[in-house]
Design a binder for these strands. Structure first.
Length: 282
DNA sequence: TTGTGTTTTATTGCCTCC
DNA sequence: GGAGGCAATAAAACACAA
């Protein structure tokens, strides 16, 4: 390992660059107090003009124990070299050191520190990437939860309406079972049941006449209004109706539901295979 | 001017590979 | 076992606000 030995000031090195002596060793360490005010006053900003760094006087005046920053030119060349290859083979290290007027050890150290900085930056980039991905998923999840709540309340509202309607129809059917007064038995327009049935089964101007024709068949059960033969599923609770529509995919709203569920399935898969289950019908 | 935070240079010790 | 890489750390150099 190169670090086994400490580096001392090498006067032959270009611009008097030197390596700081081991700071853990009190024998070699130059106490900070040795840097007097005059030296501090002469200290230059990190990015002074490049020419300044090549003034012999500047380097000659530095105490040997001072840690020296590399010049912008040296850093630039090192950066370029790092860009092309972030690992340093011995030959390249020697060449760079000669070219920069640095100790090979300094070049190696610079690369090592540069790799560490690059790794830190890379971790930050990865973190940002993951975070934005997570935020997007979270937002998607939230909107799906809202959508689910909206649909739930819609279902509840429709179910209630259905129950009210069923109650009305049931009571109407109960009245119809009473003997009709003579004279109006053949008057179809006077039958409230027919009117209600038509109201119910025709959802618009294009009302069906089937119910009128098949009127008597509707009275097969006091529990269910719909003839189970011709309208399978209509007697089932609404949630079952919706489920059956999902199953056979015959509903017009299929694409809507499939979109919703396809979207809902995404976070499920992205949660490490753990089923979320929040979209499951109650 | 000074205190404080950040960046850069360098060392140390441990680990892996040949 | 030596060479080189990496993580942790020290400390100088630097930036900047109060």
């Amino acid at each position: 390992m190169e670090s086994a030995g400490r580096f001392f000031f090498d006067p032959s090195a270009c611009h008097g660059n030197m390596l700081f002596l081991g700071n853990s060793d009190p024998v070699f360490r130059g106490p900070s107090s040795m840097i007097n005010i005059e030296e501090t006053r002469k200290r230059r900003p990190f990015f002074s003009s490049p020419e300044d760094f090549f003034e012999e006087e500047y380097y000659d005046e530095q105490s040997p124990e001072k840690k020296r920053r590399l010049t912008p030119e040296q850093v630039h060349l090192l950066e370029k070299s790092f860009e092309s290859e972030n690992k340093l083979e011995p030959e390249r290290k020697t060449q760079l050191a000669k070219r920069l007027g640095l100790q090979p050890r300094q070049v190696a150290v610079w690369f090592q520190n540069r790799r560490a900085r690059w790794k830190t930056k890379q971790l930050e980039r990865d973190y940002d990437l993951l975070k934005s991905s997570y935020d997007a998923l979270q937002s998607n999840y939230d909107s799906l939860v809202k959508e689910k709540e909206k649909l739930k309340s819609e279902v509840a509202s429709l179910t209630e309406k259905l129950h009210v309607k069923e109650a009305t129809i049931t009571s109407s059917l109960g009245q119809e079972s009473d003997p009709l007064p003579a004279g109006i038995a053949n008057d179809a327009s006077a039958l409230p049941v027919s009117m209600k049935v038509e109201d119910r089964l025709s959802s618009g101007s294009n009302g069906s006449s089937v119910v009128d024709e098949e009127g008597p068949h509707l009275l097969d059960s006091g529990d269910s209004y719909f003839p189970s033969d011709n309208y399978p599923g209509c007697v089932a609770p609404l949630d079952e109706v919706i489920r059956s529509e999902e199953d056979d995919g015959s509903d017009d709203g299929r694409s809507y539901f499939s979109d919703v569920f396809a979207a809902a399935a995404e976070p499920q898969q992205l949660e490490g295979g753990e089923p979320l289950g929040w979209w499951v019908w109650p």
